[in-house]
Design a protein around this nucleic acid. Structure first.
Lengths: 225, 225
DNA sequence: ATTACTAGAAGGCGAGTAT
DNA sequence: TATACTCGCCTTCTAGTAA
């Protein structure tokens, strides 16, 4: 994760509207917003630029700043984490979706200890090594978006000696009105917004006798507090 | 504002669900989540408790942590700031509301240089020293809530030698299809959710010939990016 | 196992200043 | 006016360890 001071600096830029367009900004004014010295504000901008969180165009005196896609990703992660806390999902949600065959990378990831350990301790079940790929129906896209207001379990990313593995958010669900499992949303999403992956302690395809194109219902419970 | 390191620590607790209920937490596990040492995580919890951002119940070994109302306020402020960036309001919004007489503290605050300076530079007009108090109609409460997805201008709080004055969010609007002004939302809200205060360069009551109970339309433009 | 203290190390801060 | 460098101080970290 980003250093707290940088994340807050980025956040302050978003507050100034730099998420949508370039904003004019002096290091002095930025310093005031941060409650720090001009020198430190300058340093922050340099650091953020170096990490490609922002882009700057300096014209001698005035400089214009804009948050990049990379920077927005960091803030978006934060936003999505806070959302369930402040948009208290009160209703149960049912998402309708059709089965399709993915690249079956799922089984590879699910069997990795770095993930499996977390699923077991945080979700309370040992996942079947494979994911059920679903494409959300057009009618259910409203519910799909509401999913983000529901509480989730955070799965941390990790690294082995070769590469890093990203984190994910898991939403506990009931599949086909029968099997308890979870929707897994990788934090760095690779599929489109209409695709969801579901895991469960059992082989969902077999247990629910599913084939490509079949329709399934995925139910998400409201916050239980 | 809260120190960045504390704010992030608080945010991490929210990620663990501590906004809704007590969560069991060891300083070691928390440290891992923060990417810091166990000792520092322990110190963070102590600091947050001292500032009443969290409450802890320590039973010898296990401790349970929960974010307090105060802590949630800090996170909520953050959430509301990020919302316009990620819920991109695309439509114009019209809020219907009725005029009522407030305590007319408005004129006192509006004439304070600490606020007036900011209104002039950030909103582009010198506000008439007084606010128009409006009560949102029941039918418009949906729009009232959507307001929070719209971009706003941040007015910083400040302090003189006697007391501190809180910050506010300002949403640029058109009142009565005629006058450009802004809704002022104090960050520490004192009224209920259905009350909004509007400022403008002119006396809105006179200009629009408004009396208590009259209905006015307040239009909010979509994000212009 | 925990939590949290103390002490030394590391890193971040603002002052001063060059450009 | 700006931005951003170096320097020395001071805050904040981790390590070690007590309870």
């Amino acid at each position: 994760m980003l250093k707290p001071t940088l994340l807050i600096a980025l956040y302050k830029l978003a507050e100034l509207g730099a998420y949508a367009q370039e904003v004019s900004l002096s290091t002095g004014a930025f310093a005031k917003g941060l409650g720090l010295s001009q020198q430190t504000a300058s340093r922050r901008l340099i650091e953020m630029e170096r990490l490609r969180l922002i882009e700057r165009s300096i014209d001698g005196k005035a400089q214009r700043v804009r948050i990049t896609r990379v920077g927005l990703n960091s803030l978006s992660e934060m936003y999505k984490t806070l959302k369930p806390a402040f948009e208290g999902a009160k209703q149960e949600l049912t998402i309708k979706a059709t089965v399709f065959s993915g690249l079956s990378e799922g089984s590879y990831y699910m069997s990795m200890e770095g993930y499996r350990k977390q699923f077991k301790s945080k979700l309370g079940f040992d996942p079947f090594p494979g994911t059920l790929n679903l494409r959300v129906t057009k009618d259910s896209m409203i519910q799909r978006r509401e999913l983000e207001s529901h509480p989730f379990v955070n799965i941390d990313g990790f690294a082995d000696k070769d590469r890093t593995y990203g984190g994910a958010r898991c939403y506990p669900v009931v599949v086909g009105r029968k099997v308890h499992g979870a929707i897994v949303m990788p934090i760095r999403a690779h599929y489109g917004e209409d695709v969801i992956e579901v895991i469960a302690p059992e082989n969902l395809r077999r247990k629910l006798k599913l084939q490509d194109g079949d329709l399934v219902e995925v139910q998400v419970s409201p916050a239980t507090s």
